[in-house]
C-alpha cells in the first residue's frame, strides 16, 4: 500500500472524534439529570426512596462498565427492549450505559453538595411555609450546583475516557477508528499515537479547566 493509500484512511479520525464528542456530551447531560434525581432520592425523607437511591449507586459503582454495556448491547434484544435500528443501536446502547454508570458517581457528588447546605436554612425555609419540593428548588439545589461544578468536571474527564469502551460494542468512535486504521495499514504506532493525541486534546484542556474552577471556588469561599 502506497503512501496515498495510507493517507486515505485519515478521514476516519475526525469522524471518530466527532462520535466520541457526541457520545460524551449526550451521556454527560443524561448522567447530570439522572444523577441529580438519584441524589435527591438518597436524601429524601422517605426511607424506601433512600434505599432505592443507595442501591442504584452501589450497584452501578461496583460492577464494570463493560459488563453494563454488554448487557445493554447483547441482552436487551432478548428482553424485547427496543433501542433502535441496527445502525443506531450501538450508539444508543453506549450512551445509555455511560449515562447509567456515571449517574451513580454524579449522584454521590451531588449528594455531598446537598448535605453541605446549612441545615438552618432548610429549617428556616420549611418554617416559612415552603413545601419540601419548593425548598429543594429555591434553597437547597441552587447552592449545591455552584459547589459541585469542579468535582463534576472530574467526572466529565472520566466520562470522555470511558467513551472508548463503546468501541467494544461496535460504535465507530475514536478508538475504533484507530483499530481500523491499524488493521488496514499495520502501523500500530502511528494509528494509536494519533488516537492518544486526540484523546489528550480533549482531556487535558478539560483538566486545566477543572483546576482553574477549583482555584476560583477556593477564592470565592
Amino acid at each position: 500500500m502506497g503512501i496515498i493509500g495510507e493517507f486515505s484512511e485519515l478521514y476516519l479520525f475526525p469522524n471518530g472524534l466527532f462520535i466520541t464528542i457526541q457520545l460524551a456530551i449526550t451521556s454527560l447531560l443524561g448522567s447530570l439529570v439522572l444523577g441529580t434525581v438519584i441524589a435527591l432520592f438518597r436524601i429524601a425523607p422517605l426511607v424506601p426512596l433512600r434505599w432505592l437511591g443507595g442501591g442504584y449507586v452501589e450497584f452501578f459503582r461496583n460492577t464494570p462498565l463493560l459488563v453494563q454495556l454488554f448487557f445493554l448491547y447483547f441482552a436487551t434484544p432478548y428482553i424485547g427492549i427496543y433501542l433502535g435500528e441496527p445502525d443506531t443501536f450501538g450508539f444508543r446502547a453506549a450512551a445509555l450505559g455511560l449515562t447509567l454508570y456515571h449517574a451513580a458517581y454524579v449522584a454521590e457528588i451531588v449528594r455531598g453538595g446537598l448535605l453541605a447546605v446549612d441545615k438552618g436554612q432548610i429549617e428556616a425555609a420549611r418554617s416559612l411555609g415552603l413545601t419540601y419540593l419548593g425548598m429543594l428548588r429555591e434553597v437547597q439545589l441552587p447552592q449545591t450546583f455552584r459547589a459541585v461544578i469542579p468535582p463534576l468536571g472530574n467526572i466529565g474527564i472520566a466520562l470522555v475516557k470511558n467513551t472508548s469502551l463503546a468501541a467494544t460494542i461496535g460504535v465507530a468512535d475514536l478508538l475504533f477508528a484507530g483499530d481500523i486504521v491499524e488493521s488496514r495499514t499495520f502501523r500500530a504506532e502511528e494509528a494509536y499515537a494519533a488516537v492518544a493525541i486526540l484523546y489528550l486534546s480533549l482531556t487535558i484542556p478539560l483538566g486545566i479547566l477543572v483546576n482553574y474552577l477549583e482555584k476560583r471556588m477556593l477564592v470565592a469561599r
Partner: peptide, 13 residues
Amino acid sequence: ALPVLLLIVYFGI
C-alpha cells in the same frame, strides 16, 4: 488523561 482501554489494546498488539 488516556483511556485504559487504549493502553491495553496497544500493548495487546
